[in-house]
Amino acid sequence: NITYALTDLTDTDVEEYYRGFANRVLWPICHYRLDLAEYGRKEMAGYFRVNRFFAHRLAPMIQPDDIIWVHDYHLIPLAAELRQMGLKNRIGFFLHIPWPPADILVTMPVHEEIMRGLSHYDLVGFQTDYDLQNFAGYLRREGIGDDLGNGLFDSHGRIFKAGAYPIGIETAAFAEFAERAADNVMVQKTRRSIEGRDMIIGVDRLDYSKGIIQRLEAYERFLTSNPVYQNKVTYLQVTPKSRSEVPEYEHMQKMVAEQAGRVNGAIGTVDWVPIRYVNRSISRTVLAG
Rank of each mutant, 00 (worst) to 15 (best):
L139Q: 11
L139W: 13
L139M: 15
R140T: 13
E142F: 13
E142N: 13
G143W: 14
I144T: 10
I144K: 08
G145V: 08
G145Q: 09
D146S: 11
D146F: 09
L148I: 12
G149E: 11
G149P: 11
N150C: 10
G151T: 12
G151Q: 10
L152P: 01
L152E: 11
F153P: 06
D154N: 13
S155N: 08
R158Y: 06
I159W: 07
I159E: 07
A162G: 10
G163C: 12
G163Q: 10
Y165G: 05
Y165L: 13
P166V: 08
G168D: 15
I169K: 09
A172P: 02
A172Q: 14
A173V: 08
F174V: 14
A175M: 11
E176K: 08
F177E: 13
A178F: 03
A178I: 05
R180A: 14
A182E: 15
A182R: 12
D183P: 00
M186D: 14
V187K: 08
K189C: 07
R192Q: 15
E195L: 05
G196V: 09
G196P: 12
R197G: 09
I200E: 02
I200H: 02
I200V: 15
V203S: 07
V203P: 08
V203K: 07
D204I: 08
D204Y: 06
R205C: 02
L206R: 01
S209C: 04
I212N: 02
I213F: 02
L216P: 00
E217C: 01
A218C: 09
E220S: 13
R221L: 12
R221A: 14
F222H: 11
F222M: 15
L223T: 09
S225Q: 12
N226C: 08
P227N: 05
Q230I: 10
K232P: 04
Y235E: 02
L236V: 13
Q237I: 09
V238W: 03
T239K: 00
K241E: 14
K241N: 08
K241H: 11
S244D: 12
P247L: 03
P247H: 07
P247C: 03
H251G: 04
Q253V: 00
Q253F: 02
K254M: 07
M255Q: 14
A257K: 05
E258Y: 01
Q259N: 00
A260G: 06
G261A: 03
G261Q: 04
V263M: 05
V263C: 04
G265K: 09
A266N: 07
I267W: 00
I267S: 00
G268A: 06
T269V: 01
T269F: 03
T269L: 06
T269W: 04
V270G: 00
V270C: 01
W272D: 03
W272T: 04
V273I: 15
V273P: 01
P274Y: 00
R276H: 11
R276T: 06
R276V: 12
Y277I: 04
N279M: 08
R280D: 14
R280G: 07
I282D: 02
I282K: 00
I282Y: 08
S283A: 10
S283Q: 05
T285I: 13
L287M: 15
